[in-house]
Amino acid sequence: MAVDTPVRERTVDEYKSDEKPTWCPGCGDFGVLNAVYRAMRLKNFAPHEVVAVSGIGCSSRIPYFISTYGFHGIHGRTMPIATGVRVARPELKTLVFGGDGDAFAIGAGHFVHAMRRNLDLTYVVMDNAIYGLTKGQTSPTSGAGFSTLSTPQGNPEQALNPMMLAISCGATFVARGFSAEPQKLADLIVRGIEHKGFSFIDVYSPCPTFNKVNTFKSYKESVAELPGDHNATDTIQAMNYANSDRPLYLGVFLQREAPTFEQHVLQQQSGDEGARQTVLQGLFNRFS
């Protein structure tokens, strides 16, 4: 007989590790980290049941500052590592973190396919439109003309629109937040976690050290909440809001239901590890 044990309410501090963040003062990622602590507190997660996966970049250091299990992988391969964790252990909560370079440049190929698979995880991208860890080169979300160390005469490429990319690749939850609003961001992360499927949250998380264009000030002037009557199940409407560059909308652009990859895997499993010997003997006989 199952016994209901009362679940203990955890404190925000229980989600903090003993490692102190190494980010520059004023970094947007502090706001994201606070929102993550808050979201985990709101979900009352047991830290050992959560895996935080990240790639490489300033923001990808985040697993060190969280008291859960973590995987600080290699540049751009965040999604494949998270995929392995998800399929291996679907009962664990998987939160995935990275920056715009990790997600949309070196990791773009994996990002696309992970969304196509509709893995049940939450991907928070800390988007500062610059490479911070390598001290200031242009990123896929840097605007055209943006002058950086690697584009001294101005960025000749146009910025990638992560929201439109995610919507078109089949992500089933697409949202945008702002690190200056950690409380709202925490709510978005909670909604992403509660969503069954791939939840993508792009977060404006300014780099005060290397990006003097995309700043807290510039974002504050250009962001706006999605209108209250926005129908998040309407892909075309979501695309239209995603396409707007002024204002830059915040909130849940898209949310729709679809079977997850993990559900497909589970459905296909006709036996468990106990069947190994029988299955093998059957195969041996087939070949003799």
């Binding site: 895996v51 494949p80 998270a82 995929t83 392995g84 998800r86 399929v87 396919h113 036996g271 069947a275």
Partner: peptide, 29 residues
Amino acid sequence: VLPSVGGAVIQAEDEISAINMIIGAGYAG
């Protein structure tokens, strides 16, 4: 065959993804 012993096979988008997926799964036990 693997699904009949409680396993899973993923055709990845490239080999980089394939090996990182197995690293994720190996980490997870």
